[in-house]
Design a binder for these strands. Structure first.
Lengths: 254, 254
DNA sequence: CGCTTCTGCGTATGACATACACGCTATTGC
DNA sequence: GCAATAGCGTGTATGTCATACGCAGAAGCG
């Protein structure tokens, strides 16, 4: 009865939290969750998330497909575990007391972005359930910690964190999409953008789409701004918005 | 030679733009792109995007699976067209000259949200290419138009629009995920949230996760705030951030 | 009329997640 | 020592999916 450690947490996730002792009954396991996750991640990094099928992961490990199900309840669980290990623990970063919440949160956001950048396949995993894996909770923890001393209510802090992480994810996805489209067509990202603007230019009647036409004419879409600038721009806007809120509260603002 | 209207625009998308005349040669088509899209959308609304397979759409229309490929080059194209028709044309909304860019952009964002809310399946479609369908360009047009008179550069306007639409999409996805999880477990969203916080509470050691522990203790996760409040909160932050930028420019700020 | 072109469709291919049942293995209680 | 037991690896099977290919008939063109 008390074997299961509580609410319906998937077995692999329980392993990740260090719960679930191995009851050394049957034959010794020839595999491990982490080996499976490792192989799957390698596959995803090399050929994209679409290449991650139970069959291919199994052959990469030299076992049969069905063996994996002894360690992982479903493919979805495998993906969640991949995400958790790829995220890794959050970085230390500057403490909000020393350099202010803004620097701390900006560092957190940039670290988050780097993780996604290094593991672009993460962006293609459909989100299905709220985060319950150790590292994702740890990231949440660090994000919240950035907002110590701002005077924000706890609920507001979560919202801010969700706002920032959503932005990071979004920005990274946009960039990854462009790069993926470029790679698919065998051209550079700049060429891809250029052909896209040319297409838009051909499609948009200046009368029906004056603002788009003006945008295209301005040359702003010619890709002189790199993705790093885009990210920095969005993050500054976001943090400005948060700062406006923080200033209305009793925090020091430091 | 000059039959194809230019760069590699998918045939169904060309139809959506009104290009591509029917060369009345063969037998009259018994189907149409819009009928296919309609059936697929009904299916998605009723059973989620996962239920949309070429086979099921075809049977819903009383034709064979392969017939669909006479109208649509691939399933991906079908999804794009579904998205376009479900979005519909953007709303008129207040002109920035009358009520200010902020009210205009807020209205744009809310309308965007309503579309997603009415068609939750849209959130599950993997984004693959930059928007080239008529309605998506029209939405972009209206978004840009909201920023008339702000003094922002064209490039900045796109970034702001991308920022806001990313936020809307993100917020809607978060909410849809919770609702989906609730429906899957047969409980209400409030119960689902409660069981989630209980789970987190059990997992998080107060020493390792002080901020999360404080959050849980504060009762802020007890779901008294509805999703509408969350959305309004995030949007205000975002617009505050944009406003900070606008104020540094020569625009009237009106 | 004959030619071209487009239609709908049947069949086939190869990939996929996963249920199920079997035989085997290490440990535990006796 | 020994049997019961639980965990392990795997083979086979099922049902679903997107889509390539080729055929037969229809509609318009000359």
């Amino acid at each position: 009865m008390a074997k299961d450690s509580g609410d319906g947490l998937p077995p692999g996730v329980e392993t990740a939290w260090g719960l679930r002792e191995r009851p050394g009954k049957g034959p010794r396991p020839g595999l491990s969750v982490s080996r499976i996750v490792g192989a799957a991640t390698e596959l995803a990094a090399a050929e994209g998330i679409a290449a991650v099928s139970m069959a291919r992961v199994a052959t990469a490990l030299g076992v049969s497909t069905m063996s994996l199900y002894r360690y992982v309840a479903s493919k979805e669980e495998l993906l969640i575990l991949m995400e958790d290990t790829a995220s890794g623990p959050p970085p230390q970063g500057p403490a909000p007391e020393e350099e202010g919440w803004r620097a701390a949160l900006a560092h957190w956001a940039r670290s988050h972005r780097e993780v996604l950048h290094r593991n672009l396949w993460m962006l293609r995993i459909p989100v299905s359930s709220p985060p319950t894996t150790p590292n994702s909770v740890a990231w949440m923890e660090r994000g919240l910690a950035c907002l110590r001393g701002t005077g924000l209510e706890e609920g507001e802090k979560v919202q801010v964190i969700l706002l920032v992480s959503g932005f990071v994810r979004n920005e990274a996805t946009l960039m990854a999409d462009i790069e993926a489209a470029a790679r698919a067509s065998g051209r550079s990202t700049a060429e891809t953008m250029a052909s896209y603007t040319r297409l838009l230019d051909r499609l948009t009647d200046p009368e029906r789409f004056p603002a788009v036409t003006a945008l295209l004419a301005s040359g702003a879409m010619d890709g002189t701004e790199g993705p790093d600038d885009d990210f920095a721009f969005g993050l500054e806007r976001l943090l400005d918005g948060v700062e406006a809120l923080v200033r209305t509260r009793s925090g020091t603002g430091r």
